[in-house]
């Protein structure tokens, strides 16, 4: 991609965001996701609940204050439509973002890909674990992870 725009989402509102690191200075956008803030997405509400309630103002304010410290334009509405409009306005040939845990991020990337190429960059993990990780209980995960985390600590010295 020669001139992509960056889509910043709510899991990566800091300088460690790999999209901001890989493409410093490129136009970047964050969209306040109307559906999510209305409590109508599994990120904020039980999908089985028939009467969703909106996320409180303080959560929006917290995000807003994080965003003011980043070089990013702010929009409100449907994320896919807003990101694509932003890309068009900047004559972008693609969209770069960071991988998220929330399945909603993946869903949005798939929709964006219908229009433009999307590059998804992985943030630095807390711990790198190869192969299948047994997540049945924390203790099983931690038996493996603890060793790896501390091995990284001693390399730092």
């Amino acid at each position: 991609m020669q001139c992509p725009i960056l889509w910043i989402h709510g899991e990566a509102l800091g300088p460690a965001n790999p999209a901001l690191q890989a493409y410093p200075g490129r136009p970047a956008v964050f969209v306040f996701d109307a559906e999510l803030l209305a409590g109508r997405s599994p990120t904020t509400g039980d999908p089985a609940d028939a009467t969703p309630q909106a996320v409180s103002l303080k959560r929006i304010g917290f995000l807003y204050e994080c965003l003011l410290e980043l070089p990013v334009s702010l929009r409100h509405g449907d994320v896919v439509a807003e990101v694509l409009a932003f890309a068009r306005a900047h004559g972008a040939d693609g969209i770069v973002t960071s991988a998220g845990t929330d399945p909603r991020v993946e869903g949005i990337c798939q929709a964006l890909e219908q229009e433009l190429p999307v590059e998804v960059l992985e943030p630095e993990p807390f711990v790198e674990l190869d192969g299948k990780v047994d997540l049945g209980r924390f203790s099983r995960y931690w038996r493996r992870a603890e060793r790896e985390v501390w091995a990284a600590a001693s390399q730092e010295q």
């Binding site: 209305a38 909106a54 996320v55 103002l57 929006i60 304010g61 204050e65 994080c66």
Partner: peptide, 20 residues
């Protein structure tokens, strides 16, 4: 924010967002 997000209830938190 009240104007932009009329459905969102309550006040700002005393806890401030941001990297700083």
């Amino acid at each position: 924010l009240r104007r932009l997000f009329p459905a969102a209830k309550g006040n700002l938190s005393p806890i401030r967002g941001g990297r700083r």
